[in-house]
Amino acid sequence: MKAKRNARNAKGATAKKAVRRVPAAGRRVIRSTKRLLRKVQEIPLQETHVAEAKFYTGPATSSYQRPAVTPVEQRELPQGYDEDVLVVQVRDPLWTHVYWDLRFKTWDECRARYNADFEKARWTLRAYDISFIKFDGTNAHRFFDTAIDVAARNWYMNLGAPGTSWCLDLGFILPDGRFVTIVRSNVVSLPLDGPSWMTDEEWMIPDDAFRRLYGMSVGLGPNVSSPVGRLWQERLKRDVSSGAVTSRVSSPVGKKAERPSFWLVVDAELIVYGATEPDAAVSVQGKPIRLRKDGTFTLRTALPDGKQEIPVVARSAKIDETRTITPIVTRRTTRTP
């Protein structure tokens, strides 16, 4: 009993593992989605990338990663708020994310009521298709069950039907087959993944003309041959494949150029410094240079390959005299291999 309660409070790591346990039908979808996801995460879309560049201060770490600068907040948010809650959120036309929490009291009440049956009950999410109706708990068009690990506290669920509306129950199935609802979710509507089939009389448009317009609207041009419903999928595909090119091109649109695994960069700079009377006028290679209050000066320059003659001329402010000193510097760089 204790173990169960602990499991309920399992931390994120367990939760993640549990989420992977998905009914067989969904598994293949997840796998292919994951592959796609991986592919795309390496090569994020341009939009994401620009927005990301906004937060790019260089490959430095955040200030927060260095406790010396900012003491990391020690307090953590609670695991839950001891309430019965089940919330569904739409991720895309097929998938939803579900999270839940149960009160300790609810847990104890169930155990008291169903005794040994409760320990054998299978925790389940029951999804009701309630498209275009007012749901009273009994009138759903259909429902399906998904076995879950209640300790996971969240689940990604493929509802698989764009344009439909759903409501979920979190509960358990007793050994005799009865389903006990513990908490009911909000209602969600999945967006369409293509154009609506509904048209209105006043604003009719022939299918062919709409197809052209659709192709142009999603940036595929007017001469596309796919049926309208598939054009959106094509836009997604195209975006992904254009991203694939990005990863190989070093451009602001692409990622930063990858360095080879071993590399070396060398450059050289030259520091010329000296001192004279604080009120003297000093020039380096004919260009005046500002003196510090004590009459010292420093010039730091990049030093490219080649020979540099650097005449430093000081002219006194008091008497008509100049001094010239000319360092001559040669840089020659060789490389092997």
């Binding site: 369409l192 293509g194 509904m198 448009i205």
Partner: peptide
């Protein structure tokens, strides 16, 4: 807009 209901003319 494109996936609006009804279809946007």
């Amino acid at each position: 807009v494109l996936h609006a209901t009804p279809r946007p003319k």
